[in-house]
Design a protein around this nucleic acid. Structure first.
Lengths: 153, 153
DNA sequence: TTATCTGCAAACGCTTTGCATCGGA
DNA sequence: TCCGATGCAAAGCGTTTGCAGATAA
């Protein structure tokens, strides 16, 4: 965690990402490495368009289709987690642990919400006559900043 | 609950729906009555397109825009509940009680999941530094039928 | 009468697809 | 070498919008 930014650290991080891709039986390409790198270091919860814009601004001349292809591949191999934060708001992040999300209805900020029982959600799956694999919880409301702005305004 | 289908029951049901609309400060129009009626009696969890197709097949010559306008109005007044069952899968149902949803990843069927603590979800809202209004939980997996088909096939 | 709803069609935003080219293994 | 990834552009899908005409209150 200390070598962020040093040439050595850069190389080591890239190697680690390449290894991840190989383990997922995916070819190691520039765009995949950069996409993973972007999601690893920066802000979480990026949209496909955020990613396209960000990567292009970093000098990577990739196409929109490649972003979607890559995201799809990485999600299906479990390297990325996709969250449906509302109509037309599909967000991607590195999958490192199970968690849920809070979406502020005012400013749109996304907060991670810890998942108390690991992968399992709140409600008891035995209430459902089905085999439950995953549970996605989305909380909606006002974040602290927006709530205070409303109260003092 | 006995007069389903009898002329009297029809009229009474329509009157009830009209009252609902008036209480929500919405004008009583044919398309709104029929939309509410469709969602009240038939299958729950209909998409905007399902609704358009269904209502047109019942002889109501309404437009796509009206369906979306009406759904939006009814949702904003709390008469309908909208669920995001996946990318491009927005489903509408009469709002009668808080509950969550299970989505079968094989056949796409939607099951209602009771909400054990009323409006409150599983995870403790005090873990979030925000004011939580709602929580939407979506369980994914295989429904009983699909699970058994897989096991026996 | 008037604010509101409806219909139509066009536009919109996000995502997927087809196909030729490029490139990692 | 060869399968898979990329780029480009076009199409697809669900949804929204603008405006003229209809209609509930």
């Amino acid at each position: 965690m200390a070598e962020r930014g040093s040439p050595d650290g850069e190389a080591r991080r890239t190697l680690a990402l390449a290894t991840q891709l190989k383990m997922a039986r995916l070819r190691v390409t520039r765009s995949r490495l950069q996409l993973l790198s972007l999601l690893s270091e920066g802000r979480r919860h990026l949209s496909a368009d955020d990613i396209l814009t960000e990567m292009r601004s970093q000098g990577e001349p990739l196409s929109r289709a490649t972003v979607y292809n890559t995201l799809g591949a990485l999600v299906s191999r479990g390297l990325l987690m996709v969250t449906d934060a509302g109509p037309g708001r599909t967000l991607y992040e590195i999958f490192d642990h199970w968690h849920h999300h809070f979406v502020c209805q005012k400013c749109g900020v996304i907060l991670d919400v810890p998942c108390v029982v690991g992968e399992n959600p709140c409600l008891l799956p035995d209430q459902i006559d089905a085999e439950v694999d995953t549970a996605q919880v989305i909380f909606r409301g006002r974040c602290r900043a927006c709530a205070e702005r409303d109260a003092h305004g």
